[in-house]
């Protein structure tokens, strides 16, 4: 059997704080296969964001092994293995949308012509074709977040890590973006790691739902989705969807009582 794209074995992370050590992650075992859409869900302090940051090499685990594309997270970052989308769009107000998307490309040293080509391509992917010359303040919050997803897609990372990217948006915009994200995922075949607070969002998007629980942060349950890959929005009314959401909720509750 092939090793998974993201492979965690017994990953632990302890932060040293003034109040003594805090165990943020304890014995996390998880394999994510190529092309999967994996959601991390759990209450605050369950380590879902911390685990995503470990994959990105922004935090270094204090125990266990973690590989990304067979490399250490640090090597994987230098090899441009992933694009990272934060909760806030974080677009620079002094750059146009196209300028913002070019930012990582400039840093990584792509040629000018290549930059232009890639900007055009990813703007199309997030349906912002005619917005390249606009400035961030001219766009709505949802459009800004799409621009930030475009920026994460601009270089050829085959992994997309998203930390509550739609957490600050209202529900209608969020539904729309969820639908677009699924379409994008189908077209690009990326492997996606997605942190969320929302059970419907997790169930709607994922092929695999990782339920986490706090103190210490650990995996309570991994639920494989039984939904088909093709998912119209109204699938959320189906009994299958409701049953899955129920399992996730049960998992969260058990983790919480433990």
């Amino acid at each position: 059997m092939k090793t998974p794209v993201i492979n965690a074995k017994g990953v632990c992370l302890t932060f040293e704080t003034n109040d003594g050590p805090v165990q943020a992650l304890k014995d996390v075992d998880l394999g994510i296969e190529r092309g999967e859409f994996v959601s991390f869900i759990g209450p605050s302090g369950c380590g879902k964001t911390t685990f995503l940051r470990c994959i990105a090499g922004l935090e270094v685990p204090t125990g266990g092994t973690l590989t990304v594309n067979g490399l250490t997270p640090d090597e994987a970052r230098k090899a441009r293995s992933y694009g990272y989308v934060f909760q806030a769009a974080g677009l620079y107000p002094w750059r146009t949308i196209a300028g913002n998307i070019k930012l990582p490309l400039e840093i990584m040293g792509y040629s000018k012509a290549d930059q232009e080509k890639r900007v055009e391509k990813v703007l199309g992917l997030v349906e912002l074709d005619s917005f390249g010359k606009k400035f961030p303040w001219q766009l709505s919050g949802g459009m800004q977040q799409r621009a930030s997803i475009a920026r994460a897609l601009a270089f050829d990372a085959d992994i997309l890590l998203m930390d509550e990217p739609f957490g600050a948006l209202d529900e209608i915009v969020r539904d729309h973006l969820n639908e677009q994200l699924l379409a994008l995922w189908a077209r690009t075949q990326k492997t996606i790691g997605f942190v969320t607070h929302s059970i419907p969002e997790a169930v709607y998007l994922s092929t695999k739902i990782v339920v986490m629980s706090p103190r210490p942060g650990r995996i309570a349950e991994v639920i494989e989705s039984t939904l088909p890959r093709e998912r119209p929005l109204d699938i959320r009314e189906s009994p299958e969807f409701i049953a899955l959401a129920h399992r996730v909720r049960e998992g969260l509750r058990e983790g919480h009582d433990a």
């Binding site: 620079y92 930012l103 400039e106 840093i107």
Partner: peptide, 23 residues
């Protein structure tokens, strides 16, 4: 968050300075 973002792109100190800190 903005500094982390630069790190995810493995930006050097001088790239972070000219593109983020100075503006």
């Amino acid at each position: 968050m903005q500094l982390d973002q630069m790190r995810t792109w493995s930006a050097t100190n001088s790239q972070t300075f000219w593109r983020l800190r100075l503006p």
